[in-house]
Amino acid sequence: RAAQGRAYGNLGNTQYLLGNFSEATAFHKERLAIAKEFGDRAAERRAYSNLGNAHIFLGRFDVSAEYYKKTLQLSRQLKDQAVEAQACYSLGNTYTLLQDFERAIEYHLKHLQIAQELRDRVGEGRACWSLGNAYVSLGNHEQALNFAKKHLEISQEIGDCN
């Protein structure tokens, strides 16, 4: 049964990489059910991430947000800060797609905070880039400029010419 769970996860990932997002979600839901059956919270967390990602490409941003929130909740329980940061980044981008810029900013700020704690300059740069764009969408050009400057500074430091 445990191996069946892993096989479902692998099938979900393969369908996802083939661009078959509906099929991917069906397999990841099976994977999720088996992870719950075994109380395997790490596998449950992975399934939520994979389901969130697949729903983005199905255009179901609202569903993605709910799965990413489950990922965030489990990453906190599992005390995995890198995954927590990634979940916040995903939620920030998903709320941008949902045009809820205030909520997008909340999650991007949380992502920024964790990236700073982890000394992850690439993550920090991405958070600043995202925050700059979100503040532009809200018409807050002063804050947008602050984050754009910070993004430029970090990009120069890490040698990201793009």
């Binding site: 692998n10 596998a43 992975r46 490409f57 764009n133």
Partner: peptide, 26 residues
């Protein structure tokens, strides 16, 4: 107009490009 605007959010576009190749492996 809003959806055209959204397509111009370059940081989201970049995230989605990376996301397409991102899977949580078993």
């Amino acid at each position: 107009v809003q959806s055209v605007h959204l397509l111009q959010v370059d940081s989201v576009q970049r995230w989605m490009r990376d996301l397409k190749l991102m899977t949580e492996c078993e």
